[in-house]
Amino acid sequence: MRFSQLRRCTLFFSLLFACIAGPVAAADIGQVKVAKGQVTVERDRQSLPVTVGMRLQPSDVLKTGDDGSVGVTMTDNSLLSAGPNSILSFDRYEFDTTTNQGKFDSTLQKGSLSVVSGRIAKQSPDAMTVRTPGTILGVRGTEFVVSAGG
């Protein structure tokens, strides 16, 4: 009797916890504005085709094929665009639209990338970094290109 009450209680709290901690709509961090050729996004261990207008979420990883390229505009107005055979991951993105403060770290694992930095980089130096294997770029502003072998 007491055991079944305990189990019911456990079940109740598990369900309650599931409701609280359950799937929360991830905040958009940016939007795909340009997509040509083969472009996919790795999200929640799935590979999804990328289309123009798609919104990006934290931890997304963009991949382009031999003929692929992709351009995204972040919510802080940063512009990132990758050429063919690229892997670009959004490691960390936080942006407060009221104060313009934030943190933006991404990694170009391979391929080519053009960057126009936005409000995050403008507010504080080193708030925006782009990594490649072995290298860290600190972005003071504003436009540059970077490639990574691999």
Partner: peptide
């Protein structure tokens, strides 16, 4: 060197201060 990658700073269209630090 080429395969490992490179970084190039582009000219700034509206004359703002611009810089990138490259750290290895």
């Amino acid at each position: 060197a080429y395969n490992r990658g490179s970084v190039v700073l582009l000219p700034e269209s509206d004359g703002r201060e611009t810089a990138v630090t490259v750290t290895t």
